[in-house]
């Protein structure tokens, strides 16, 4: 059977779908988009919001406490997060500027894959740095803060070697755990999607290589 024989039937099929009325079309155009690119840009905005909130809470803590360690944590976090903030913003605007109406499918796939891969790398690095900085510094605040005269701190002061060992083990577990958790999370969130898009792009690339 030749596929061309189906052409007339295929074209006639446009008329057999139950039509959506204009009022419904109008309502749908005003709704929130749920497509992958819109969700992706919303996720980046959430990340940017999280970074800003983290810094805001930090600055409030600096203003209302007189702890030098907190000042250092906020300062270091701010220095570390500024490049990430810039990179997230860059990804956001790049995704926003992917033009589904004028770009070819090949360019759209290329753009989305490239951005998504870069975004996951940036996200992973930001998550790891956050753990590496905030974890140890948070413990240091508790340890060196003389005002925190609670039984736990006293126990730590009585057995410093055991505490250091437990602390080191705890930090290693947190850092390694966070490493695997972030990898798993990113793979779950975007891994299959990137793989699916890559398969489409590979199919087009195979054709291009024929020439």
């Amino acid at each position: 059977m030749n596929i061309d024989e189906f052409k007339i039937l295929w074209q006639a099929e446009s008329a057999v779908f139950q039509r959506v009325d204009i009022g419904e079309i109008r309502r749908m155009t005003k709704s929130k988009a749920t497509d992958a690119l819109s969700q992706f840009s919303r996720n980046i905005l959430l990340d940017i919001g999280f970074l800003l909130m983290f810094l805001l809470v930090g600055f409030v803590a600096v203003l209302f406490t007189q702890n030098v360690l907190i000042d250092w944590i906020v300062l270091i976090s701010a220095i570390v997060f500024i490049p990430f903030f810039y990179m997230f913003l860059q990804r956001y605007f790049y995704i926003k500027n992917i033009k589904l109406q004028s770009e070819s499918l090949y360019n759209v796939l290329n753009g989305v894959i490239e951005n998504l891969s870069q975004y996951t790398t940036i996200y992973f690095r930001a998550a790891m740095i956050l753990t590496l900085i905030v974890g140890p510094l948070g413990v240091a605040i508790g340890f060196f803060n003389e005002e925190m005269n609670n039984p736990f701190v006293q126990m730590v002061q009585n057995y410093p070697a055991s505490f250091l060992l437990a602390l080191s083990c705890g930090l290693v577990v947190i850092i390694v755990g966070n490493y695997f958790f972030t990898r798993w999370y990113l793979k779950k969130l975007y891994g299959n999607y990137i793989e699916e898009l890559k398969a489409c792009l590979d199919e087009l690339d195979d054709l291009v290589q024929l020439q």
């Binding site: 779908f17 139950q18 959506v20 419904e24 709704s31 929130k32 749920t34 497509d35 992958a36 690119l37 589904l100 109406q101 770009e103 499918l105 759209v108 796939l109 989305v112 299959n192 999607y193 699916e196 898009l197 489409c200």
Partner: peptide
């Protein structure tokens, strides 16, 4: 086509409440 191919749907998802009323499409 660009929207459909760059889209990704998870296998298990909750039905959307703000979609069409089921009679259409």
């Amino acid at each position: 086509i660009n929207t459909a191919i760059s889209n990704y749907r998870k296998q298990k998802r909750r039905p959307r409440l703000d979609g069409l009323n089921g009679e259409e499409l």
